[in-house]
């Protein structure tokens, strides 16, 4: 198989950078600290059903920490990828090779994703500590890691768009954080406080939520579908049954729990995952388009 040369070269450089092992170590250390704090109750005391809830809470915390670390790291990675080439003055050199803006964006994006997936995979053993305490299956842990990888992809694609728009890495990074914050806070605010939020219905989800209960999630605010954090919370709620009250009260999702119990959250979480994937693809295409227009139009304008 022929590797994208930009992927290959960027990956090689990334793994040689001094800060790479530092980022990986810090990432794992942050998770391990929480794991130890949460699960210390088990050390030397055996395993019991009563302690299971503590284990599950530890698992939820570790997932939450991973989520925030990914949201923190991803934009910094991808926002610098195209802007960095411009700052390094290698952008023109790549352009004259005829490599094309699409391969350039895909090469950079896949390399960034590969690094974040590596970080997520490194965290798998720490996350799997929950298997010792019980309450969550190995398949659940894998599903959560997959979910985090898709969130990483979505966050990276936002950074990629900003990297295509802005010429300076720092500006692109700040713009990416602002955009991600706007997406998260905006969709949440619209769903929670927006006057029209409760009026939204999404009947297509009825079938997914619970077969034979057509009115199951009538009150689901559509904007919630664009919020990765909500998707992750729903996934965890479906897996653990712990977070359902939060869901009910803060997200106006009363019907789901009423009709199908906490298991009803999981399908909605997967729908949000699909929406995130679609958004990531769209944003990647947008980054390619912006760059394509810039390289054509810039040559006209500059």
């Amino acid at each position: 198989m022929k590797l994208n040369p930009i992927f290959e070269s960027s990956a090689r450089r990334r793994m040689r950078m001094g800060k790479t092992p530092v980022i990986l170590t810090a990432y794992l250390a942050a998770m391990l600290v929480f794991a130890v704090c949460e699960l210390s109750a088990f050390f030397g005391q055996g395993v019991g059903v009563a302690k299971m809830r503590t284990g599950i809470e530890g698992y939820i915390w570790m997932t939450a920490i991973q989520f925030f670390l990914i949201i923190l790291v991803a934009p910094a990675l991808s926002a610098g990828s195209i802007a960095g080439e411009r700052e390094r003055q290698t952008f023109d050199l790549l352009l004259v090779t005829g490599v094309g803006t699409r391969r350039m964006v895909l090469g950079k994006l896949t390399e960034n994703l590969a690094f974040l997936v590596l970080m997520i995979l490194c965290s798998a053993p720490v996350m799997s500590l929950v298997l010792v305490t019980g309450g969550v299956s190995a398949a659940d842990v894998l599903a959560t890691l997959l979910y985090l990888a898709v969130i990483a992809l979505a966050a990276l694609s936002v950074g990629m768009v900003m990297s295509a728009i802005f010429r300076r890495t720092l500006v692109a990074v700040i713009a990416s954080y602002l955009a991600i914050f706007a997406i998260g806070a905006g969709t949440w605010a619209l769903a929670k406080h927006g006057p029209i939020a409760a009026a939204y219905t999404y009947d297509g989800l009825n079938h997914l939520a619970s077969a034979g209960t057509p009115a199951a999630i009538r009150s689901l605010p559509v904007t919630i579908l664009l919020n990765p954090a909500v998707g992750l919370v729903m996934l965890l709620a479906g897996q653990t049954g712990i977070l359902h009250r939060t869901m009910q009260t803060t997200m106006r999702l009363y019907d789901i729990y009423t009709v199908s119990g906490y298991a009803g959250f999981t399908p909605v979480a997967w729908v949000i995952l699909g929406a995130m994937l679609a958004a990531a693809l769209l944003m990647t295409a947008l980054a390619c388009l912006i760059l394509h227009l810039q390289t054509g139009a810039a040559s006209r304008r500059r």
Binding site: P5, I6, S9, V99
Partner: peptide, 25 residues
């Protein structure tokens, strides 16, 4: 084309630098 600036990467060996552009071409 060789512009009036270097345009080189850090953490890349000389042959790898050329290999990147050869791959792109």
């Amino acid at each position: 084309y060789m512009p009036d600036f270097f345009g080189v990467y850090d953490n890349l060996k000389a042959w790898e630098y050329l290999d990147l552009y050869a791959g792109c071409m």
